[in-house]
Design a protein around this nucleic acid. Structure first.
Lengths: 151, 151
DNA sequence: TTCCAGTTGCAAATCATTTGCAATTGATTC
DNA sequence: GAATCAATTGCAAATGATTTGCAACTGGAA
């Protein structure tokens, strides 16, 4: 199994995810399992509301989705992405990975494609060095018009 | 005067800015002049609230700052930046420019440095071609720890 | 089974931003 | 310079995302 396989959407088993909660001595509750299960079955970043509406009625309160997502984010189990529309989106982070990657978003229909390409590391190092910054990272998202919307 | 000079902060004269409003048959009002004047004297992206509090008491209402900023944005006179903290920031765009550039933000003290480096165009073209997208652009911001905060 | 800190539901609070509407005001016309 | 009128503004209330106070509830350790 190569490294790429870890990135396959839906690859993570729910029990492995809840195990990660246990390792950090966090409780494995119904709402958290429901959220993790929804995230692991979705290939793209989801908003808290989207996660909430994916739930079979009454799994938990919307506030709990927000609270859980924030917990999962601080634990490093999900990563937050901002597409500039004022709504936070979250994606599951593979175990032992930092989840760093980018997206290409259609400005017409909002279709989202995962992008493997990244900002060149040497160039980033140059920017860090030139300005004396340390521990530099970046947020990067691409926007354009998808094939279907070009018709 | 080379191209670079156009990017010098504070280089734009207020009368040239208001002239741009006139060219698009927008009214040159007190609030708009105050906002443009504050933006042209500030080297970095400002939030609407920051612009509002920079005003000498009672130049205008906060709602007017929001409305004006949105107007200026659709006119292409200011560009909006998102640093992932849920607050929009705006910078004046030099005339005849699209204002495309990036920032390096200190995660400790929020110091902002303007970054000239950009995502490599060939790589962006590859990403566009590979996914069949057209008119591709990107949002890119860097985060790290500034020299002062490293002490 | 008991126990208790961690969680949750619910409602209210916060924060950024937008909007309805009546009053005001640039800029054009006379 | 005065009349005119649509664009603009102030103010308050609405919206939308997200957070929080608090009492009730529940994993999971003992």
């Amino acid at each position: 199994m190569n490294k790429k396989a870890h990135h396959h959407h839906g690859a993570a088993r729910l029990c492995d995810l809840t195990e990660r909660l246990r390792r950090k001595s966090r409780r494995v509750t119904g709402p958290r399992q429901a959220i993790l299960d929804i995230l692991r079955r979705h290939p793209h970043p989801l908003t808290n509301k989207e996660v909430f509406f994916e739930m079979t009625k009454g799994d938990c309160d919307l506030a709990t989705v927000y609270r859980s997502m924030r917990l999962l984010e601080t634990m490093g189990m999900v990563k937050r992405f901002d597409f500039g529309d004022g709504v936070a989106r979250y994606e599951l982070v593979p175990d032992g990975d930092d989840g760093h990657h980018h997206h290409l978003i259609c400005v017409h229909c909002s279709e989202i494609v995962e992008v493997q390409e990244c900002f060149p590391m040497e160039l980033e190092q140059q920017i860090a060095a030139k300005n004396g910054f340390k521990q530099i990272t970046h947020k990067l998202e691409f926007f354009g018009i998808c094939p279907r919307c070009q018709l």
